[in-house]
């Protein structure tokens, strides 16, 4: 059995003394897994993702990601943790419109203090691997949705994070681009990348994930491995 990359122990998250938006949740994700988190709106999917990324703190419980106790991290430590261990892909890409594609991809590496030359080589390799190296000097506004999401994935992977978090990665894409991104996520996982993706898209989950976790009203109501056939 591979080492867990994520461990949730009795994690609860409540907002302003309201009912728990999430939890209590116990969840373990092993390295190399691609876990799709599914559920209706308000089920706690985004809260779960924010807790893993240290964008938010749990009300109680323990979260360990790649050996780091996440719930204790402050803003600065959280930023460093995300740099080193998390790659994030957002529904609306969140590329910086004023930076060209290459500079967008380079940004996390440069923030981490990686030399520009080294980071540039890695960025160009990633862009090439993701099929968007031709757009390195372009600005995000000129790219299609699928291309932008590929750039966002390249940016997420620039620091070789052990975990990739994707929040509705196909939510803002047309059909062709959606297929494109599905393939990309599947390929990444097949290369050993641990992935947690939050989605409404059952088909995306079925295609890309090795495991499916369903949430309802903040609780895990189903957690099952997906067969290779279904993928």
């Amino acid at each position: 059995m591979t080492a867990p990359v994520i461990e949730f122990k009795q994690v609860v998250k409540s907002y302003e003394n309201g009912p728990p938006a999430l939890g209590p949740v116990d969840l373990t994700v092993s390295a190399g897994e691609a876990v799709a988190v599914l559920g209706p709106s308000g089920s706690g999917k985004s809260t779960l993702l924010n807790l893993i990324a240290a964008l938010d703190r749990p009300s109680s419980g323990e979260i360990t990601v790649d050996g780091v106790r996440v719930e204790r991290l402050g803003e600065a430590a959280g930023a460093k943790y995300r740099r080193a261990r998390i790659g994030m892909v957002f529904q609306f890409f969140n590329l910086i419109d004023d930076l060209c594609v290459l500079d967008n991809v380079l940004l996390p590496a440069q923030l981490a203090g990686v030399g520009r030359g080294e980071a540039r080589d890695r960025a160009l390799t990633l862009l090439s691997a993701l099929g968007v190296d031709g757009y390195a000097k372009h600005y995000p506004g000129r790219l299609s949705g699928g291309e932008r999401q590929r750039v966002a994935v390249a940016r997420a992977l620039i620091n070789r994070p052990p975990l990739l978090l994707a929040d509705e990665p196909t939510g803002a894409l047309d059909t062709a681009s959606r297929e494109d991104v599905k393939e990309l996520i599947k390929d990444l996982n097949e290369q050993g990348q641990s992935i947690v993706l939050v989605t409404h898209d059952e088909e995306l989950a079925a295609t890309c994930a090795t495991r499916e976790v369903r949430l309802l009203d903040g609780r895990v109501v189903s957690d099952r491995a997906l067969s290779a056939v279904s993928r």
Binding site: E75, A79, K80, F90, L107, P108, L111
Partner: peptide, 16 residues
Amino acid sequence: VHDIGVYKAIGMTPRQ
């Protein structure tokens, strides 16, 4: 502020 959120999400520390 949204861009600042993105910067922070990809690893920019408060000091940075």
